[in-house]
Design a binder for these strands. Structure first.
Length: 257
DNA sequence: TCATCCCTGTGG
DNA sequence: CCACAGGGATGA
């Protein structure tokens, strides 16, 4: 479910609640998380809350509590447990962070050092991109989804970014011209920032929520994702859907070449 | 570089 | 009933 914009939205919303607050205890409500509590020297203040790619990092007592929401995880802030399958609670004096996860795919662990082999964040100077694409025969869509190459892009935003850049998602990465690669390098941070401004994408109300339970807003601005058969906003051509690397991929066959 | 699997729920 | 779902680790 959550890609970078959703994870960033979650981190920004939780930060004022947890940063500098004392984490009192970790309650595993799902057996998979038993034993996690012993890994942290509690109680201890949360020294920092940050995001790297799609990972959420709580710095506590010199260690890192790492959360990845995968497809269906949510982090909600509240005083009492929310509806749904609550798997873990991080208790503070004034409330708690609840991990809700319908599919039980979310991952939580405690580490001393965070190293997942992630590629660079998709912001700032992306002038390295054109050169990086040259080595790969992967479809450009698959390349964008590979977290080792660039961190944080998922299935929705890969589609939206390639639409914005006017590039066919099936093209081998190394077939992009310098001009196309530069368009891509522009589209990546543009689309992601717009999605963060929109507080993320909630496609169905069963999935992504902000920590206060509200839906995101960017689903209203999606140009192609989930819109197979609908008219391209620019040219009216029906949006096509194909599978790339096992994932549904949406694009405009006329605008994206 | 690709299928397969993890897990559960929903929608066609 | 089966296909599919916003992610990613794994092994061929």
């Amino acid at each position: 479910m959550p890609e970078l914009p959703e994870v960033e939205t979650v981190v920004r919303a939780l930060r004022p609640h947890v940063e500098g607050s004392e984490l009192l205890r970790l309650e595993p409500l799902d057996p998979a998380f038993q034993g996690l509590e012993g890994e942290l020297p509690l109680p201890a203040p949360v020294e920092g809350l940050s995001r790297r790619g799609k990972y959420i990092l709580f710095r506590v007592g010199g260690r890192l509590l790492v959360v990845h929401l995968r497809m269906s995880g949510r982090l909600l802030w509240g005083e009492t447990p929310p509806e749904g399958r609550v798997r873990l609670a991080l208790r503070f004096r004034k409330g708690a962070v609840f991990l809700v996860d319908r599919r039980r795919l979310a991952v939580v662990e405690v580490v001393d050092k965070f190293d997942r082999g992630l590629g660079p964040e998709p912001f700032g100077d992306l002038s390295w991109l054109p050169e990086a694409l040259k080595g790969s025969r992967m479809p450009i869509k698959g390349w964008l989804l590979d977290q080792r190459k660039i961190a944080g892009i998922g299935n929705i935003y890969a589609a939206e970014i390639l639409y914005r850049a006017g590039i066919d998602p099936r093209r081998p990465a190394r077939s992009l011209t310098g001009e196309e690669a530069r368009r891509l390098a522009q589209a990546i941070p543009q689309v992601l920032k717009e999605a963060i401004d929109g507080k993320g994408t909630s496609l169905s109300d069963a999935e992504y929520r902000q920590p206060d339970g509200e839906l995101g807003g960017f689903q209203l601005k999606l140009a192609v994702y989930g819109r197979a058969g609908e008219a391209c906003p620019a040219c009216g051509t029906p949006i096509a859907r194909v599978k790339i690397a096992g994932r549904s991929t949406y694009f405009c066959p006329k605008c994206q070449r």
